[in-house]
Measured scan of single mutants.
Amino acid sequence: TTIHVGDLTLKYDNPKKAYEIAKKLAKKYNLTVTIKNGKITVT
């Protein structure tokens, strides 16, 4: 599972963990989490 945050690309083997991290990042920086085709993007 890949999380895209701006220019950063973070890879995680565990999709659930990746989603949790994405949610935390989104909350911290007041951003939105988008999931599309298995890719998690924080914008």
Results as ranks from 00 to 15, higher is better:
Thr1Asp: 06
Thr1Trp: 10
Thr1Met: 13
Thr1Ser: 10
Thr1Glu: 05
Thr1Leu: 13
Thr1Phe: 12
Thr2Val: 12
Thr2Arg: 02
Thr2Tyr: 09
Thr2Ser: 09
Thr2Trp: 06
Thr2Asp: 06
Ile3Gly: 02
Ile3Met: 05
Ile3Gln: 02
Ile3Pro: 04
Ile3Trp: 00
Ile3Val: 13
Ile3Tyr: 01
Ile3Arg: 00
Ile3His: 03
His4Met: 11
His4Leu: 12
His4Ser: 10
His4Glu: 10
His4Ala: 07
His4Arg: 09
His4Gln: 15
His4Gly: 04
His4Tyr: 11
His4Cys: 15
His4Pro: 02
Val5Lys: 04
Val5Pro: 03
Val5Tyr: 11
Val5Cys: 09
Val5Met: 13
Val5Arg: 03
Val5Leu: 14
Val5Phe: 15
Val5Ser: 05
Val5Thr: 02
Val5Trp: 15
Val5Gly: 03
Gly6Tyr: 09
Gly6Pro: 04
Gly6Asp: 05
Gly6Ile: 08
Gly6Gln: 05
Gly6Met: 09
Gly6Trp: 13
Gly6Ser: 05
Gly6Val: 07
Asp7His: 14
Asp7Met: 12
Asp7Asn: 15
Asp7Thr: 13
Asp7Ala: 14
Asp7Glu: 13
Asp7Lys: 15
Asp7Phe: 13
Asp7Leu: 09
Asp7Ile: 13
Leu8Ala: 05
Leu8Arg: 07
Leu8Ile: 12
Leu8Phe: 08
Leu8Val: 10
Leu8Tyr: 07
Leu8Gln: 06
Leu8His: 08
Leu8Trp: 07
Thr9Phe: 10
Thr9Glu: 12
Thr9Cys: 11
Thr9Ile: 15
Thr9Arg: 04
Thr9His: 11
Thr9Gly: 04
Thr9Trp: 09
Leu10Thr: 04
Leu10Cys: 15
Leu10Ala: 03
Leu10Arg: 01
Leu10Asp: 03
Leu10Tyr: 07
Leu10Ser: 04
Leu10Trp: 06
Leu10Ile: 12
Leu10His: 03
Leu10Lys: 02
Lys11Pro: 05
Lys11His: 15
Lys11Thr: 15
Lys11Ser: 13
Lys11Gln: 13
Lys11Met: 13
Lys11Cys: 08
Lys11Glu: 12
Lys11Arg: 13
Lys11Phe: 15
Tyr12Val: 10
Tyr12Ser: 04
Tyr12Gln: 02
Tyr12Phe: 15
Tyr12Asn: 03
Tyr12Asp: 02
Tyr12Ala: 06
Tyr12Gly: 03
Tyr12Leu: 08
Asp13Gly: 07
Asp13Asn: 10
Asp13Lys: 10
Asp13Cys: 12
Asp13Ile: 07
Asp13Val: 06
Asp13Phe: 08
Asp13Ala: 10
Asp13Ser: 09
Asp13Glu: 11
Asp13Pro: 09
Asp13Tyr: 08
Asp13Arg: 07
Asp13His: 06
Asp13Leu: 09
Asn14Tyr: 05
Asn14His: 06
Asn14Leu: 05
Asn14Thr: 11
Asn14Ala: 03
Asn14Phe: 05
Asn14Ile: 06
Asn14Glu: 05
Asn14Gly: 04
Asn14Ser: 13
Asn14Val: 05
Asn14Met: 04
Pro15Arg: 07
Pro15Leu: 14
Pro15Ala: 11
Pro15Asp: 06
Pro15Gly: 06
Pro15Met: 14
Pro15Cys: 11
Pro15Ile: 13
Pro15Asn: 07
Pro15Thr: 07
Pro15Gln: 09
Pro15Val: 12
Lys16Thr: 12
Lys16His: 12
Lys16Gln: 14
Lys16Ile: 13
Lys16Val: 11
Lys16Phe: 10
Lys16Cys: 14
Lys16Tyr: 13
Lys16Arg: 13
Lys17Met: 13
Lys17His: 11
Lys17Glu: 12
Lys17Arg: 10
Lys17Phe: 11
Lys17Ile: 14
Lys17Gln: 13
Ala18Tyr: 03
Ala18Asp: 01
Ala18Cys: 11
Ala18Ser: 01
Ala18Val: 05
Ala18Leu: 08
Tyr19Pro: 00
Tyr19Lys: 07
Tyr19Asn: 05
Tyr19Asp: 02
Tyr19Ile: 13
Tyr19Thr: 04
Tyr19Trp: 15
Tyr19Cys: 11
Glu20Ala: 13
Glu20Asn: 07
Glu20Met: 12
Glu20Thr: 08
Glu20Lys: 12
Glu20Trp: 12
Glu20Cys: 07
Glu20Ser: 10
Glu20Pro: 00
Glu20Ile: 11
Glu20Leu: 11
Ile21Thr: 07
Ile21Trp: 11
Ile21Leu: 08
Ile21Met: 14
Ile21Gly: 03
Ile21Ala: 14
Ile21Pro: 00
Ile21Lys: 06
Ile21Ser: 05
Ile21His: 08
Ile21Asn: 04
Ile21Arg: 05
Ala22Lys: 00
Ala22His: 00
Ala22Phe: 09
Ala22Asp: 00
Ala22Cys: 09
Ala22Gln: 00
Ala22Pro: 00
Ala22Leu: 13
Ala22Ser: 02
Ala22Gly: 01
Lys23Tyr: 12
Lys23Val: 14
Lys23Phe: 13
Lys23Met: 15
Lys23Cys: 10
Lys23Asn: 11
Lys23Ile: 14
Lys23Gln: 14
Lys23Leu: 15
Lys23Ala: 10
Lys23Thr: 12
Lys24Cys: 13
Lys24Pro: 00
Lys24Met: 14
Lys24Phe: 15
Lys24Val: 10
Lys24Ile: 14
Lys24Asp: 07
Lys24Leu: 14
Leu25Glu: 00
Leu25Lys: 01
Leu25Phe: 06
Leu25Met: 06
Leu25Ala: 01
Leu25Trp: 06
Leu25Ser: 00
Leu25Val: 06
Leu25Pro: 00
Leu25Gly: 00
Leu25Tyr: 04
Leu25Ile: 15
Leu25Thr: 01
Ala26Gln: 04
Ala26His: 03
Ala26Tyr: 02
Ala26Asp: 00
Ala26Thr: 01
Ala26Ile: 03
Ala26Asn: 01
Ala26Met: 05
Lys27Leu: 11
Lys27Phe: 08
Lys27Asp: 12
Lys27Ile: 10
Lys27Arg: 10
Lys27Pro: 01
Lys27Met: 10
Lys27Gly: 05
Lys27Asn: 08
Lys28Leu: 09
Lys28Glu: 08
Lys28His: 07
Lys28Met: 09
Lys28Ala: 05
Lys28Val: 05
Lys28Asn: 03
Lys28Tyr: 10
Lys28Trp: 09
Lys28Gly: 01
Lys28Asp: 05
Tyr29Phe: 11
Tyr29Pro: 01
Tyr29Gln: 02
Tyr29Thr: 00
Tyr29Arg: 00
Tyr29Gly: 01
Tyr29His: 07
Tyr29Ser: 01
Tyr29Asn: 02
Tyr29Asp: 01
Tyr29Ile: 02
Tyr29Glu: 01
Tyr29Trp: 08
Asn30Lys: 09
Asn30Leu: 05
Asn30Gly: 14
Asn30Glu: 04
Asn30Asp: 08
Asn30Met: 06
Asn30Phe: 06
Asn30His: 12
Leu31Lys: 02
Leu31Phe: 07
Leu31Asn: 01
Leu31Ile: 06
Leu31Ala: 08
Leu31Cys: 11
Leu31Val: 06
Leu31Gly: 09
Leu31Thr: 04
Thr32Pro: 03
Thr32Val: 14
Thr32Met: 09
Thr32Gly: 04
Thr32Tyr: 06
Thr32His: 11
Thr32Ile: 14
Thr32Trp: 04
Thr32Cys: 10
Val33Leu: 14
Val33Glu: 00
Val33Cys: 04
Val33Ile: 14
Val33His: 00
Val33Ser: 00
Val33Phe: 06
Val33Thr: 01
Val33Ala: 02
Thr34Ile: 14
Thr34Arg: 08
Thr34Ala: 09
Thr34Asp: 06
Thr34Gln: 12
Ile35Leu: 07
Ile35Tyr: 06
Ile35Asn: 02
Ile35Asp: 01
Ile35Phe: 06
Lys36Met: 13
Lys36Ala: 14
Lys36Pro: 01
Lys36His: 13
Lys36Ile: 15
Lys36Tyr: 09
Lys36Ser: 14
Lys36Glu: 15
Lys36Leu: 14
Lys36Thr: 14
Lys36Gly: 12
Asn37Gly: 12
Asn37Tyr: 08
Asn37Met: 07
Asn37Ala: 11
Asn37Thr: 06
Asn37His: 10
Asn37Gln: 08
Asn37Lys: 07
Gly38Thr: 03
Gly38Val: 02
Gly38Leu: 02
Gly38Trp: 04
Gly38Phe: 04
Gly38His: 05
Gly38Gln: 04
Gly38Glu: 04
Lys39Gly: 07
Lys39Thr: 15
Lys39Met: 15
Lys39Arg: 11
Lys39Ile: 15
Lys39Gln: 15
Lys39His: 15
Lys39Leu: 14
Ile40Arg: 00
Ile40Gly: 01
Ile40Met: 04
Ile40Gln: 02
Ile40Asn: 01
Ile40Ser: 00
Ile40Val: 05
Ile40Cys: 06
Ile40Phe: 05
Ile40Lys: 00
Ile40Thr: 02
Thr41Tyr: 15
Thr41Glu: 10
Thr41Pro: 00
Thr41Asn: 08
Thr41Val: 14
Thr41His: 14
Thr41Gln: 08
Thr41Gly: 01
Thr41Leu: 13
Thr41Met: 14
Thr41Asp: 05
Val42Ile: 14
Val42Asp: 00
Val42Ala: 03
Val42Asn: 01
Val42Arg: 00
Val42Gly: 00
Val42Cys: 06
Val42Thr: 02
Val42Pro: 00
Thr43His: 14
Thr43Ile: 12
Thr43Trp: 09
Thr43Pro: 01
Thr43Ser: 13
Thr43Lys: 11
Thr43Cys: 07
Thr43Leu: 10
